[in-house]
Design a protein around this nucleic acid. Sequence first.
RNA 1: UGGCCUAUGGUGUAAUUGGUAACACAGCUGAUUUUGGUUCAGUCGUUCAAGGUUCGAGUCCUUGUAGGCCAACCA
Length: 560
Amino acid sequence: MSEEKKSLNFIEHIIEEDLRNGFSTDDLRFRFPPEPNGYLHIGHASSICLNFGLGLTYNAPVNLRFDDTNPEKEEQEYVDAIKRDVSWLGFEWNHECYASDYFPHLYEWAVELIKQGKAYVDSQSSEEIAAQKGTPTTPGKESPYRNRLIEDNLDLFERMKNGEFEAGDQVLRAKIDMTSSNMLMRDPIMYRIMHKYHHRTANNWCIYPMYDWTHGESDYLEQVSHSFCTLEFAMHRELYDWFLDQVYDSEKIRPKQREFARRNLSHTVVSKRKLLQLVKEGHVTAWDDPRMPTISGLRRRGYTPNSIRNFADTIGIAKRENLIDVSLLEFCVREDLNKIAPRVMGVLDPVKVVITNYPEDGEEWLDAENNPEDEVMTYRKVPFSRELYIEKEDFREEANRKFFRLKLGGEVRLKNAYIIKAESCVKDENGNVTEIHCTYDEDSRSGSGTEASMRKVKGTLHWVSVAHAQEAEIRIYDRLFADAAPDSHKDKNFLEFINPDSLQVVTGYVEPSLASAKVGERFQFQRIGYFCVDKDTTNDQLVFNKTVGLRDTWAKLESK
RNA sequence: UGGCCUAUGGUGUAAUUGGUAACACAGCUGAUUUUGGUUCAGUCGUUCAAGGUUCGAGUCCUUGUAGGCCAACCA
């Protein structure tokens, strides 16, 4: 096997160049820094795969760091969910870190900055501060408190920490440049007062550091070498570097921030805020609703970690705007599931077939292939009897030769069983077919080796014996949004594009071997698609989620 | 009347750093098949524009054009 030379993305090029310039591989260290204010989604999966993937290729440690500087939005529930999702994706972090662990250190550094005259306490309201900030095209004005005495700043800042002020009364600002073309450099706020309970530090603090002041210093404290974030932070880089300059010791590793474009998936949204809205307003049942593009939703839908990693790998990392078609994600699950999912038979929209020349009380347990993709074929037993269910759409009274399925006077193979011929059908008063009467060729049993069993018939149908069928609730999902980019319309709310038919619940009949299926197990319902057992399954109710359909070239033909 | 970033088939991403534009998905043909699945073979189609440097430009330079981001005590 010759190893293909793998092409590198721009991030890997940056690392390779640093290595060429003398940076030691041993000093490489990465981090994945989620804010615990929501569940991880498919976009985060790209970032996770990037950072942890880099850790794997360079044998470097990767920290999981919670960016928990805003107690207003953050919760332990999200911390737990994030850890579960990263682990499930198959990655191991070196240290589990929290920005809140650095609060004391950050505070000391802030005091140092004040002493150096590089930070000051501003006693204005947020409105006043905003008014002085200027706009992208006009410079800002300096705060009247900008040149406060160092000892006054020290005193005020300590009193802020001690809880002597109400939220909003004071802030600590870095003294940089109110005329900078980069608005983030116009004396950015480092600390604000919040009398809020924090999920880790409880009520120990009533001042909380802002993102810019926290993030780079956290990277530095952890000695992260490369800090990757999304494009909207590109302008923050100048500030990131400025803050780093204030504390940097040249003996240590200086973290480097670089930005990549977030991945957008068609027919959904990847924004924690919007996903939260979908949950809160009840458009979906929960963060792990199988229609959600969250990691937990995809997991519940039946996606495999492997398929998501392959997807991330296939779409790559770059800096341009993008909208990745879901069909690529779907390809990745099918690719994986085709190899690993056991084949079973289930009928979702049943119509009864009666084999008139089969004994009334006859019953046979036939061998059925578990997965033709396996190197060594294994088999299970499926019951066959006189009355069966097949899919309604697999029968037509008459049809042209392109219809390979069952039609009056025509023959078809029942998968793993016999060749049958449709003789007549029974209809209700509305003309709907309620029963199809067939005869079977008793010499044609699959695998029997008889001449009749080798006969070529064009169509093969899946089926389930009525007497042995296991009833199951089947949840069939379609895209959550009808529009490819629901949140790209300036004049329309993304909710307007919700697909009202994204969930369809039907009662289906599956082969009895599925009675013992466990939550999370994945199967291919032959000729239909991939399904997995939902957590709502109980002892007397099986529930399946449809992960994705099989490629359906017949449906494509028909729609032409 | 600012600053930063980006532009490669329908979609996503590459191109040994200036040397034949390729890979995957999607589409289309056909073959195989006891899943209209899988597999296999084939096919369609690409460097934003205009100049410039060069023997040679997707890559470098200039000027445009288009799109994204920046005025939260969010991250």
